[in-house]
Design a protein around this nucleic acid. Structure first.
Lengths: 352, 352
DNA sequence: GCAAAATCTGCAATCGATTGCATTGGGCAT
DNA sequence: ATGCCCAATGCAATCGATTGCAGATTTTGC
């Protein structure tokens, strides 16, 4: 008595062919039975049997094999300039949640604000056949959009737009209304009585920096004021914030500073202390983003809250829609931010 | 005069077959010429010509097609319990940097501390044929490791180990020496003169929580003391920290609390203030992780600094090594943390 | 100067799933 | 009872790159 022939499931995972053999049908039938979209093409009884066998054999689809045939990897990529900046994780989380719910995996990469690295990463993503790309790293002079176009990868910008570039209209973007947002900060400072207000701007070439800067100037002039100082930071980092603030402090006097983002504010606090002055008491500070925990720094930062979650969600939905139908008209969404008043802003100290 | 036959590069990307035709060689030769590892098998002249044609045609490898054949996707997955917690982005960054340098893309997913979601994500990663998995989400009762084993995916644990589980030894892990780390905090508090010290522990089933808890107790008893209170938090979140601290404050008196991590400390600060007391002046607080910006909260948090970057790097190296040779002995690396003293700890207030 | 060995290149199968087209069979109408 | 149509299933090609094997060419050794 020979033992019955062993179905041999041991080596590797079961394939559609294994299931077909076991269920006594053709591989194509298995494929149709297992794919929800085509399941209707197959008799209910067959579908049931195939599903049962597939389960028993522990069959798992191979996204790679399917992707080769269909040219879709069920994967999207997301490029972030700097994951360490706490505003990105919440955005990423929202994007990933929406994508995961639709069956997409998310390839994440840090560009570290380096255009060369960004290009390399896009190439690699193209190699991996991502179905779409979410770019949080837009900046002037980047070839990112051109690369996406070349590879035919649908892309959506998030948080940052292309700074008045030529190809703006060609790509959807979900960003904050930065000009409006910084205006809220200016209004607040003016209402407190400040007249000499400086701006610590973001790095050149990034839309959040340029928009907040022009928004700052516009709103200030709306109040009949001129900036008491304006220095751009080299990057959106704490260190760059400290350096830029030190430069501002070395210039003409001011009683308040509207800073381009919260990360810079940490450096601003450092610089103010290093100069022997006090935030709020001597100089009012406003931030931008309301990133996590800035309510707990001292003094609590008055800042402009953005809608991280809505941003990620909407961008994800738009990307999915454009992946499904590339002919869809492009969209340019501006989310409206709100001012959160804490302890870093006070009426100006009258000069003795 | 008919125009010369058009090479037809327009539709889609050029494939290896296109390059072969154009270069007048066989596809297999192209493959060998273009793959650095096999380039030596081919005449230098041919290699040159093929490379030139490939460039001209804008050929890009298809990781999907190659992956189907080789069963390697050049992709690794990383599972994070909660990306919003600022200790994970630096770790992730380190992992991603090492992986990118070796040509691997990184699939990131949030488990949101949900074992079911974790299982689903691992399945999906298996579907995508990841070559390896980095798990930052280890906890008791998770089937993660079993799933990896079933799918034959090499895995490495990072930041959290399996809590004294059976299969510890089967998987490499790179973690902090949590018991030693919390001991540093205890030593510091005792040296300041505290005798009634409480512990705000992490959530059940997570190694960082259990190790820090036993480390706390051991070290306390080493000093001849008993805990003045011990409450576990429901999760590593600010809210859970607040709730747990409120519970501690409602119990027997204590002058200092060693908290299981920095995120919880934010809630601890909230709770202390809500109770009308002051951190440092009335109750000393120590954290764990030295996550970004806790130097700027008020009062600056005394905490235990971990080596995010080294952790990510080493875990990545180990994963790569085990992917290359699954027979390698498993490793269990403990990185040693250091105490960072700031303003949240002071000698105890003598009761009047 | 000729055989043996080494080197290069081509051939064809393969990875696993998908899908247009062909075939089969059952049901229905006349 | 005959023919027709439609639904269900099978067949085979395909996606793009890799690789064991074999054939062709060159180099080496004696």
């Amino acid at each position: 008595m020979l033992p019955p022939p062993i179905p041999s499931p041991p080596p590797g995972r079961a394939t559609i062919a294994d299931v077909a053999r076991e269920a006594g049908v053709h591989a194509s039938t298995v494929s149709r039975a297992l794919n929800p979209a085509t399941r209707g093409m197959v008799t209910e009884a067959v579908a049931l049997r195939v599903t049962e066998v597939a389960d028993r054999l522990g069959w798992r689809p191979s996204a790679v094999a399917a992707g080769l045939r269909t040219r879709k990897s069920r994967t999207i990529g997301i490029l972030v300039p700097d994951l360490i900046n706490p505003i990105f994780p919440p955005i990423l989380h929202a994007v990933e949640t929406v994508m995961a719910a639709r069956g997409y995996a998310t390839l994440v990469a840090n560009t570290d604000n380096d255009p060369a690295r960004e290009a390399l990463l896009i190439e690699r993503m193209a190699t991996h056949l991502v179905d779409g790309l979410m770019l949080a790293s837009a900046a002037a002079g980047t070839g990112a959009l051109a690369l996406c176009a070349r590879f035919g990868i649908p892309a959506v910008l998030i948080n940052r737009r292309m700074p008045q570039g030529a190809d703006c209209a060609a790509t959807s973007a979900v960003t904050n209304d930065d000009r409006h947002g910084i205006g809220l900060a200016v209004d607040h400072l003016v209402a407190l009585g400040h007249r000499r207000i400086a701006h610590l701007a973001g790095p050149e070439g990034v839309s959040t920096a340029t928009d907040r800067r022009t928004g700052f100037l516009d709103r200030l002039r709306h109040h009949g004021l001129e900036p008491a100082g304006l220095v751009p930071a080299a990057a959106y980092t704490r260190e760059a914030g400290q350096v830029a603030m030190a430069a501002l402090l070395a210039g003409p006097p001011f009683t308040a500073v509207a800073v381009a983002n919260d990360m810079l504010c940490l450096g601003v606090y450092d610089a103010v202390e290093a100069a022997g002055r006090r935030v709020a008491a001597d100089v009012s500070v406003t931030g931008f983003n309301d990133m996590p925990f800035v309510d707990r720094i001292h003094p609590g930062l008055t800042t402009v809250r953005i809608q991280h979650d809505a941003m990620g969600r909407q961008a994800a939905e738009i990307l999915l829609a454009e992946m499904a139908d590339p002919a869809l008209p492009r969209r340019d969404i501006r989310l409206v931010p709100e001012l959160v008043i804490r302890a870093s802003t006070r009426p100006p100290q009258e000069p003795a």
